[in-house]
């Protein structure tokens, strides 16, 4: 049983909140401007959680329909199990361990893939990769996140 409910928008809102409380940490990495989607495949449907990053913040988290999700710079697509395993690894290790970084996962593409129509949008996955990783690594501080006002 995973620590995280990856089908619940609250998880992504909590991660965004955590990021928005850590501006000094993210300032070291620099501004990041991208719109990306976490696509979570359940047996019935795919949930598209769209996140808008601007400067040092994650400004918006929304559950969007599939046709809107295509307009993002890129989508990270994986099953509930894959996303849960990734977040569990982050939680267990305080940050993603080697094979569970988002870049490792997307590179292999067998569990989580990075998809998009525009190579320039896809390249933003590379341009802002460390910011995205540190955003996800916020799940390693779940207790802290959940205790924040």
């Amino acid at each position: 049983m995973s620590t995280f409910d990856v089908t619940n928008i609250k998880l992504y809102e909590d991660l965004a909140s955590h990021m928005n409380h850590q501006s000094e940490h993210f300032r070291i990495l620099g501004d990041a401007d991208m719109t990306m989607v976490f696509a979570v495949q359940t047996p019935d449907k795919t949930l598209h959680f769209q996140l808008v990053f601007s400067e040092l913040r994650c400004d918006a988290v929304d559950l969007v329909p599939a046709d809107e999700a295509h307009m993002a710079d890129f989508s990270l697509v994986g099953s509930v199990e894959s996303w849960s395993d990734m977040f569990d690894d982050i939680y267990a290790n305080g940050g993603a361990s080697g094979p569970w970084t988002i870049n490792s996962l997307a590179l292999r593409g067998d569990r989580i893939s990075c998809e998009g129509n525009d190579p320039m949008g896809l390249d933003k996955f590379s341009r802002f990769n460390q910011t995205l990783q540190d955003f996800l690594d916020g799940a390693g501080r779940l207790d802290l996140i959940r205790s924040q006002p």
């Binding site: 080697g98 970084t101 490792s104 590179l107 292999r108 933003k124 590379s126 341009r127 990769n129 460390q130």
Partner: peptide, 28 residues
């Protein structure tokens, strides 16, 4: 990007990830 699979430790992984971000700008 493949640095994640090439690198034997988290130190080289971070080197590759940071350099990757810069390189992607140049390609863009």
């Amino acid at each position: 990007r493949m640095g994640e699979l090439i690198a034997p430790s988290h130190v080289e992984k971070k080197i590759f990830r940071m350099a990757m971000q810069d390189e992607a700008r140049h390609v863009a």
